[in-house]
């Protein structure tokens, strides 16, 4: 349910009467989250007698968030406020790709492969990256992690690709 608000920024599409776009869009998004939560908890049992059901408190908080989102959006209409900041695409895209890759790869491919590729994919997120340097540092860091996490900290995790071990 956390994914809903990460939608693309709405820029200059907003009508003129919105004087504080940052607050307006923020408030609307919170309302959307609240409505989503209301829908998601609609199958849960409500009050019976004076005893709370599983859905009572989630719905209470959702309604409260709906109200607060509404007030924030209203403030965005009535008061002058800052514009919505510009979003970069490169950083978020590659950092997210790197994270998702790590999540998919850690089980089948093991720590060594996933950490190294994760480093390189994330490095794509900045235009300052120098590749030779990134590969060397990535390799050293992978080695460090491979020693630190499973051995020093004793966290159980696969090291190498599964098909190599079997």
């Amino acid at each position: 349910m956390s994914d809903t608000p990460s939608e693309a920024p709405v820029k200059s599409i907003l009508p003129k009467w919105v004087r504080g776009p940052q607050d307006f869009v923020g408030g609307i998004a919170l309302m959307a989250i609240a409505l989503f939560a209301l829908w998601a908890s609609s199958d849960l049992q409500g009050m019976h007698g004076f005893s709370f059901g599983a859905g009572t408190v989630p719905r209470m908080f959702a309604v409260l968030l709906l109200l607060l989102g509404g007030v924030i959006a209203l403030i965005g209409v009535l008061n002058d406020g800052p514009q919505i900041g510009t979003y970069a695409w490169r950083g978020p895209l590659f950092v997210m790709l790197s994270i998702v890759f790590f999540a998919l790869a850690i089980r089948p491919l093991g720590l060594v492969v996933s950490a190294f590729s994760c480093f390189l994919i994330a490095a794509l997120g900045s235009h300052e990256t120098k590749w030779l340097e990134a590969i060397i540092v990535g390799a050293c860091l992978t080695l460090g992690c491979a020693l630190l996490f499973p051995y020093v900290l004793g966290l159980p995790m696969p090291m190498f690709p599964r098909f190599l071990i079997q």
Binding site: S2, V95, V100, F102, A103, C118, F119, E133
Partner: peptide, 30 residues
């Protein structure tokens, strides 16, 4: 430029290690 990919890795491994759950890593990304 070298620091931030390292941070990404540390965070990813850190989250994964808490529950051994890849879903947690994706959730943290979200």
């Amino acid at each position: 430029r070298l620091m931030f990919p390292s941070i990404v890795i540390f965070c990813a491994i850190g989250i994964y290690s808490i529950n051994n759950a890849p879903v947690d890593v994706v959730l943290a990304g979200a």
